[in-house]
Design a protein around this nucleic acid. Sequence first.
DNA 1: GCGAATGGTTGAGGATGTCAATCTTCTGGA
DNA 2: TCCAGAAGATTGACATCCTCAACCATTCGC
Lengths: 148, 148
Amino acid sequence: MSADHIDPQEKLTEAMMRTWREMYRVADLIRQRVFDVAQRHDLSAQQAQLLLRLDPDAPASMRQLAGILGCDASNVTGLTDRLERRGLVERRALPSDRRVKQVAVTEEGMALAQRFRAEVSAESLLLPLTESELETLSSLLARLEGWS
Amino acid sequence: MSADHIDPQEKLTEAMMRTWREMYRVADLIRQRVFDVAQRHDLSAQQAQLLLRLDPDAPASMRQLAGILGCDASNVTGLTDRLERRGLVERRALPSDRRVKQVAVTEEGMALAQRFRAEVSAESLLLPLTESELETLSSLLARLEGWS
DNA sequence: GCGAATGGTTGAGGATGTCAATCTTCTGGA
DNA sequence: TCCAGAAGATTGACATCCTCAACCATTCGC
């Protein structure tokens, strides 16, 4: 369907609109939370994003990281520079292809990432719900797919 | 509880972790969606954020907008400049206090905001769920509160 | 082996964000 | 009333984020 012919109002039920509002609200809470924790550790949201997405067991190339983060490769250069300057990450040459530089998390980076994850989910947003409600919520959310 | 003593791993149940992952994933989908629609209309995510938060019936001062957006007032100046340059918004002097400038949405701004909201929720993320599942989801989400 | 593709960086330029300083306008107390 | 200080908006300096085009080194395909 072309964006030129969207007229979604008539297709949106009351329940959809209510759910949409709630999801948007909760997404905002999460974003705010991540931002706060990042700030506490002197990281920008983007630096945190990159650090958290790095797999300690599988270093990724700059190119791959650009794909993961959905941004230009030249942007990853700067982000990596700043994380490397703080010792959270390091560039490694790939012997099999000397064009490639892989980004590996350092010990310090792993420690910070773990602490970060812990702080974000601590005092959880989810405490008001019972175990069985959590089961229901996660399985409903799991059925939502992206747009395309 | 001080952030120095957080050790949440032992408090997090399996269901909590699964739910947290799903919420994070869905929050990401929403962020991506908003970004895409904004880009389609030549708006940055922040410009869209500001435009969508303006109430046509109650123009807000720069100061108030800074509060709503959670940023410095000087930042709102630039944001408003760029929206005003496109005719989506206009500054109005407040007669009762000539220090204050209020930001009002123009007709064009309102039209764009409405179109924006429509496009974001069109081809909805929520289509996989039935009406009764939507009721369940929205009431579960409604019970989640922020951290503090 | 050589031209083309690939990976990373650099530089220009714009948007976002903070902080400190400034200008204008209010406001409250002597 | 007058004046010191608070409050609202802007500006300038500076760092980050982000894209695009240009560039260098390396690798790959023919």
